[in-house]
Amino acid sequence: MNDSRELILGRIRERLGRSEANAPAAGAVIDATLAARAPGPRPPAEVAPQSLLAAFRARSEALASTVDEVATLADVPRAIAAYLAERQLAPRAVCVPDLAGLDWRGAGIEVEARAAVDRDLVGITGCFRAIAETGTLMLCSGPASPATVSLLPETHIAVATAPTIIAGMEEAWAAARAVFGQLPRSVNFISGPSRTGDIEQTIVLGAHGPYRVHIVIVRG
């Protein structure tokens, strides 16, 4: 805490006419606002699981992600192996510890479960929630899901199970509060490969993060 804190807050209070008399009422408004968590206007939310999946898929493809669907979690390694082969990418990846238990070796992929480093070319992550409104992946960092895996490699592959697909960000917040209590250090909403339009407003994929985002949806 430094001297300017009181100076700045003092100036603000003076401008706002804050007094001991009106502070409690204002404080009550603050608390009520925080308790209410009132959502703003939003597009009508998809609810049916099938339409959520379809909307999520269409929106993420519109953001230059690619999407695959498999029946069960056990099918994921083979689907990813096929994706890597098709893109002529080496069958080697770093994955979040959350997904270490899948049979990667059986699918012919050499996978290490850890945080990513610069030389990793493929990163495989899970996904806390997937947002249909915008085709966005919501990743939460933690010991079993380091943030670097979706950031440093040139290819990011995310595994999302169908029940995690929700309508909008509001449902994502509700889920995060319910599951974590307090927010994880980083919540990253990822919507397609990293991009820049800084040179002549021409969109280029792969600015500092991944060039490709591939999403494998597990229907079961």
Binding site: T148, N188, S191
Partner: peptide, 17 residues
């Protein structure tokens, strides 16, 4: 492409942050 919501410092057992 990225909206990051960052809260606090590297936690117990975190690899990064």
């Amino acid at each position: 492409n990225y909206v990051s919501l960052l809260t606090g410092t590297k936690g117990e057992g975190d690899f990064d942050g």
